[in-house]
Design a protein around this nucleic acid. Structure first.
Lengths: 340, 340
DNA sequence: GTGAAAGCGCTAACAT
DNA sequence: ATGTTAGCGCTTTCAC
């Protein structure tokens, strides 16, 4: 293994000089020396040892991508996570950093890995409010959370306008002549603001503005994880009372597609009998039958902004936390019927 | 920051003793000391510094997941890669290791990152034969490649029985009464054995066994990257000569789905006019219209086996390389017509 | 069973 | 502009 010292010896200079060259500290080294040293580095295929660097400089140039979820689940198989972290990879590398991907199910674990590797910053997906508090306490490097509605003022977050998504869905239904509406969402089990609640609130309040009430009997919450069974139940209720509901806003495309299938099995036509609007605009929406009208969020953009934010915080030591909210749009496809 | 030394001081022992405790080297420490030290570690929330460890022990406990591809592409957005690497994450963590994900487009870059971090082992997806040679030379840690057909004897590889997949497709077509067949595949630009060529060979040779010739005019190769345009061309030819082809074997589901759409635009019915068999069994196949009959490979299993192989090589220092081939199966859906 | 001490490869403060 | 040197936190050999 070729070390800094080897290069220094061969060049007849001190390790300090070589170190400066390696780190592009040109102002401290003479032209000739710099050039000569670079040549030797090239020739000997010298690669700096990142561990030694980290140890001495207390900065690893590692960014952690943390996914919170149940043990054993393939978290990246979820198209949302795959796009988000997949986009992060280049963004991180473009800054000359390395990306460590970590699945965790306890905050202690997060803190341990972050500390152990002298991680310079981390981006989280799937964090609950409880965890955010604890993680924030245990660690003092830049941390970016996503889709969080915690009231902790000092956290940085990138989210989308979930409320507005609900509004868009409501307005689209109204515009198409639907007034008997329902809602299906994941139940997060969390109190207070959260992604699902906001989507619901936006939906409900836009309807209220038009003096339309959302029948709570037509609002369903399904458990996260495997929603298959719950969705069957929802489909049953919907099928039974199909005259009482003409449009359903579903808080996630994954759920909406499952509902589509469950309704098809019960010979309920979409959009003839029931219209559906999803959320996220995952790739599956264009292959669904019918193709799904949905609220689109730009996942890749979210990832890039998360990394931008992160590096701004890494560079400007005590930058104050930011909370960024991205816009969403409605993508019209074939799952909403135009009523005469 | 709490260090080994802090713990040692508080316990009134040497750092060597604490180090042994941390590393579970119980045989070298008295019961009482071990217990007491563990308590202090717990109380002080001591977390070992991985960089220092790596530097001293020359092993980082980092595994690299390397994806080769064009700059800028979101490689993890591809469902195959997402499932493969997503599955790797747990497998790696279960062994107490960390996963670094890296997109690269040159072998020098691979070698640099691997060396820089003292990476203990790496798994590759998307490597070309040329690269494998060079990477192999530049680095002497356990390396696992996937889907490679290089003739280098000393590399470890996990692949699938591509040839057999082609055979299964051919037999299925024959069994359903199809004899006028075609093929569509990515052109890899590589000479010699490769995934696409093997799938084709299996297909062709199974047909040959039944004295059926594959018309080269009905075999198409499309460029990797964005195949949209090429697929349009293929669809045109297929549409024009639709009486001369009744079944097409497509070397990848992604391609098959694109073809499905292109044919639909030309009012060619699948499977009424043309039957199609894909390859991979990606999730999209069940949402395609019609649902796609395809050759299934178990991507998660492949990932787990890759990691198994890797750790066996890491543990048994000079284990000889292994080349594992996994079976594939045909999943029958609705894209192949039963001819009377 | 325990401790002393020599590194691992690098950075950065300080001296020249 | 360049060199000297003291660590960074840990592992590991060797002596006791």
């Amino acid at each position: 293994m070729v070390t800094l010292k080897d290069i220094a010896d061969e060049a007849g200079v001190s390790t300090a000089t070589v170190s400066h060259v390696v780190n592009g500290n040109t102002s401290k080294v003479s032209r000739e020396n710099a050039l000569r040293i670079r040549k030797i580095i090239q020739k000997r295929q010298y690669v700096p040892n990142s561990s030694a660097r980290t140890l001495a400089a207390k900065s690893s140039h590692i960014i952690a991508g943390i996914l919170i979820g149940g043990a054993g689940d393939n978290l990246l198989k979820d198209p949302y996570n795959a796009e988000f972290f997949g986009e992060m990879v280049w963004a991180v590398q473009d800054h000359g950093y390395y990306l460590m991907i970590r699945y965790v199910n306890s905050y202690e674990e997060v803190v341990r890995s972050l500390r152990s590797w002298n991680i310079d910053g981390a981006v989280f997906v799937g964090t609950s409010d409880r965890d955010i508090r604890k993680i924030q306490q245990g660690i003092q490097i830049p941390l970016i959370f996503t889709d969080s509605y915690t009231d902790l003022k000092k956290i940085s977050n990138v989210g989308i306008n979930d409320f507005q998504g609900g509004v868009l869905a409501a307005e689209h239904f109204l515009q198409k002549g639907h007034t008997k509406l329902g809602f299906v969402g994941y139940s997060t089990g969390e109190q207070g603001k959260n992604v699902v609640a906001e989507r619901f609130n936006g939906f409900q309040s836009a309807l209220a503005r038009h003096a339309i009430e959302l029948d709570t009997k037509r609002c369903f919450y399904v458990t996260d994880g495997d929603p298959r069974e719950d969705i069957q139940r929802v489909a049953d209720v919907l099928a039974a009372g199909k005259d009482t509901v003409s449009g359903v806003f579903v808080s996630a495309d994954k759920l909406a597609v499952a509902l589509l299938e469950a309704l098809a099995e019960r010979s309920i036509g979409v959009p003839e009998d029931i219209s559906i609007i999803g959320y996220d605009d995952l790739p599956i929406t264009s292959n669904a039958i019918p193709t799904l009208t949905t609220i689109r969020q730009d996942i890749s953009q979210k990832a890039r902004i998360a990394i931008d934010l992160l590096f701004r915080q890494i560079e400007e030591k005590d930058k104050s936390p930011e909370n960024i909210t991205l816009d969403v749009t409605l993508v019209e496809r074939d799952s909403v019927l135009q009523k005469s």
